Simulated assay, not measured.
Amino acid sequence: MSCPADSRDPGVPSGAGILERRLTGLAPDAFARDVWSRTALLTRHASDFSDVFDAGAVDELLSRRGLRTPFLRVAKNGAVLPESSYTSPGGVGATIADQLDDTALWRLFADGATLVLQALQRTWAPMGELCAALGAELGHPVQANAYVTPPQSQGFDDHYDVHDVFVIQIQGSKRWLVHEPVHRDPLRDQPWTEHRAAVAEAAEGPAYIDTVLEPGDVLYLPRGWLHAARAKGEVSVHLTLGIHVRTRYALAEQLAEAALAALREDPWTRATLPLGADLTAEVLDGVRARLTAAVADADPAPLYHRTRRGQGRPAPLGPLAQLAAVDALAPESPVRLRDALEARLEGDRLTTRVGWLDFPAADLPAVTRLLDGEVRTAGDLGLPLAGRLLRAGVLLPGGQ
């Protein structure tokens, strides 16, 4: 399979990103203005996704990769089956008790169960490339699942997700019923089960979208939109790209956390309440005033960026290729910043997903140049700096 970023659909400008070129056909500003987090969107014949995923990928992942839970869930008639029903020990030399059992999976699938391959961005390279590129484009982390459903079967009842999704039909066809939210923009700790009765009632009403997805069709659903899907007369394989959106509420949490950290240094706030611990207006007004002032002065940026770094992984690093690059480092050696590193230079400190490094003032111009992601030579950076960054896993060989 080729890298999805190399694929081009006819008639679409080569400079278009994944959102426009492969998922919606809309320019980013039009998608942001009219669709993003607002409404469902169906795009027919959006792209050919055979370079990203297909039935052969399903069989390989389930039977040859030695996957373990939770990289797979199995569901039937709206219920998730216990892991023990489709896992077994790995055999000689593999002291692992929960590897996928392909025979058990075959029997469950033949009996009508839906197989859900989870976190495909970690187990299938083309999916990892697509998710990384789309996440960089959207500014929100992306993960991928695949749903493999037998003919005339339904894996899950009507529900909503707490993240946005792009549904991509890969093989077969599936009927989708989509209803407007009963709880708009749910947070991650507000699952559909908290509104089970309202979801069931809304699902009985007229659908906002009632359609059959065919291979290459894409359906965008903001978080909170109700949906259920059922395979038609053949096996259905579809992907969901889950967009784990960052919210104003999460930013408010980080702002509050930064304010509370500042109040830890305030002797008045640390002081003991009066005897009896009565909640008097005087005490409450004083705490409220100091908290308001702390929020006004708080800087949530460090927590925000730390959270961003923790929500993803950097691009793959091959230890053998990295060691060879370190050993063969010369002034003409091409090097580049590792992708998806979330690198930020704050003063003389570079923070990344693989740790932080402090630099002397003389190195800061070279480090700043690296942040544009372009391929440089080790001589341009200086051999000692290039070697340090390669050993830290911040740089990769330019051709990798």
Rank of each mutant, 00 (worst) to 15 (best):
R21I: 02
A228W: 00
R64S: 13
R65N: 04
G135V: 06
G135A: 14
L395V: 06
G373M: 06
P316W: 02
G318K: 09
E234D: 15
Y86P: 15
E282F: 00
G224W: 01
P82M: 09
G128N: 01
A256D: 14
F359R: 06
D29K: 10
H159V: 11
A289S: 15
G393K: 08
D98E: 14
L72N: 05
A271G: 05
L72M: 10
G379H: 01
C3K: 00
F166L: 09
L371F: 05
T193E: 14
T368F: 05
Q121H: 15
D372G: 10
I18W: 01
Q311C: 13
A343Y: 07
A144P: 07
G233M: 00
V375A: 09
N145A: 14
E282T: 08
T307N: 14
S85N: 09
A330V: 03
A281I: 00
A340H: 09
P302D: 12
R8L: 11
R308Y: 08
L81H: 10
F49W: 13
L329W: 12
L275M: 07
I168E: 02
V58F: 05
A321N: 11
L226I: 15
V162R: 13
A386P: 12
Q121D: 15
E60C: 06
G93I: 04
T377E: 13
A366L: 09
A198K: 11
V237N: 03
A55S: 10
A203I: 05
E346W: 01
S50W: 04
D161F: 02
T247L: 06
T69N: 00
L251G: 10
P314E: 05
A125D: 02
W106N: 14
Q322N: 09
L100Y: 05
A262Q: 13
D59W: 06
L364S: 11
R107S: 09
L341A: 06
A104R: 15
H238M: 11
H227V: 02
T351Y: 09
Y249R: 13
L239C: 08
D348V: 01
L273T: 00
L390R: 08
R122G: 07
P4C: 03
D327S: 08
A324L: 11
R65K: 07
F49H: 10
W268C: 01
S153E: 15
S173M: 07
R264F: 04
L115H: 12
I209R: 13
R175S: 10
L337H: 01
G155F: 02
P186M: 11
F31I: 00
E83W: 02
T43G: 10
G78A: 03
A256C: 14
D299G: 03
G387A: 09
A262M: 14
A97K: 03
D380L: 11
S333N: 08
I18L: 14
